[in-house]
Design a protein around this nucleic acid. Structure first.
Length: 127
RNA sequence: GUAGCAGGCUAUCUUAUCGCUUUAUACCUUGUAAUAGGGGAGAAGAGGAAAGUCCGGACACCAUAGAGCAGCAUAGCGGAUAACAUCCGUCAUCCCGAUAACUAUCGAGAUAGGACAAGUGCAACAGAAAGAAUGUACAGGUAAUGCUGUAGUGAAAUCAGGUAAACUCUAUGCGGUGCAACGCCAUGUAAACCAAUGCUUGAGAAUUGCUCGUUCAAUAUUGGAGGGUAGGCGGUUAGAAUUGCCAGGCAACUGGUAAUCCAGAUAAAUGAUAAGACUCGACAGAAUCCGGCUUACAGGCCUGCUUUUUUU
RNA sequence: CGGGAUGUAGCGCAGUCCGGUAGCGCACACGGCUGGGGGCCGUGGGGUCGCAGGUUCAAAUCCUGUCUUCCCGA
């Protein structure tokens, strides 16, 4: 049950996304980059994290490739988000970006995701 | 059997676990009930090109949608179609191959294929001369003359010359904007909206590129409830639909009948892991919906024609 | 979803409207001026005009299709 990734946990609001890119901070571990921003109280719901995924069109011209990479990232996030939620004090909005130029394998992506989330937690705890 | 060409069909599969989108019965809770909330067994879930956006429609709104000009598109003839620049048939012209022999027949293919007997323009080099023109050599001819033939230049040389994928003319068609169209709800700022009345001006503004025409029009009073904002719902998938059979037609296609329901997302749903099979898997991801065209593309299957080999 | 531009020599551009010779600058090669370099002067080489097809006697130019790159609007 905890591994599911329903609609409510997806980042959908256009305003929130714009605010995320203008005011948000970022952590990166090649080939992934995470942009995040804390959610204010009235924005936060029962959900811990709102997450979105993006692959630039400039690097992957074919829609099939972009879709596939987004699916891989989403799958990797879905499998690892439980441990993240256990250590999070407040709610956040996430946007994952893919920076690489080639099609990744799921195993590589999974490792990168693990390291990326650890770096994120460290940065949070410093503050 | 082999190789090639053309056309059509197909587009890896199986199992388990975790997850995504749509739909959803039983069930649980509140409640008299309608209903509301929870729940989630099961079912369904990208393409032949979903692509390029090159044509044609459907559908929606705009009443300043009218008239004229301009502009754009099409172009043998006949048919199909909702419509088309698509498709089918056919004629003509051109090209290739075979037969046959200097002219036809057969097969395969290509064609933006109306008009230069309305006007305007254009034709490098060569050539006397490229269109209100005339001339060299030889020959012929005349009362006389480029009057006639041949040579020569050129893609084209006197003939109602060529050229319209040159302007143009003829015929036919085309209102504009596009689902982010458009309708509704919620939130909520503010007087930027609408109607009526009255007043002044006819300046200015609006529209399809232009003209005509048309419409609006400062401010004030009264009345109405509108305007902006991508937050949500509808539009949104049952259709010029698919499949089978029968009938009509040379064909494109049409009619009848039976059965079926076959994606509907909205930062945007198909993936991951493990195992197995084979021929080892190409190009590639729906976004309002259809009909075409074009482009990309591994393998497999079917049909027809041609080449060559073997057997009868 | 809609609209527009671009492609010509190694690089940057003109020529395309209105069809007949492909040109300019930088760079490159050779020669000269100088004792040498730089600089200047002269000469020269180098282009499938993105690709395919068509119209035409003739196409970078006209027409059709297609590909690449880039930009704009919602």
């Amino acid at each position: 049950m905890s591994n599911s990734f329903p609609k409510e946990e997806k980042l959908k609001s256009r305003k929130l996304i714009e605010k995320l890119f203008s005011d948000g901070k970022s952590v990166s571990k090649f080939p992934l980059k995470l942009v995040f921003i804390p959610l204010t109280e009235h924005q936060s719901t029962s959900v811990n994290v709102l997450a979105g995924f993006s692959v630039p069109k400039r690097k992957f011209k074919k829609a099939v490739d972009r879709n596939h990479i987004k699916r891989l990232i989403r799958e990797s996030y879905r499998l690892q988000k439980t441990t993240l939620f256990n250590n999070l004090p407040t709610s956040y909005a996430f946007m994952f970006l893919y920076l690489g130029k080639e099609q990744p394998s799921f195993i590589q992506l999974n490792k990168s995701m693990e390291q990326l989330l650890n770096r994120f937690l460290k940065q949070i705890n410093k503050q």
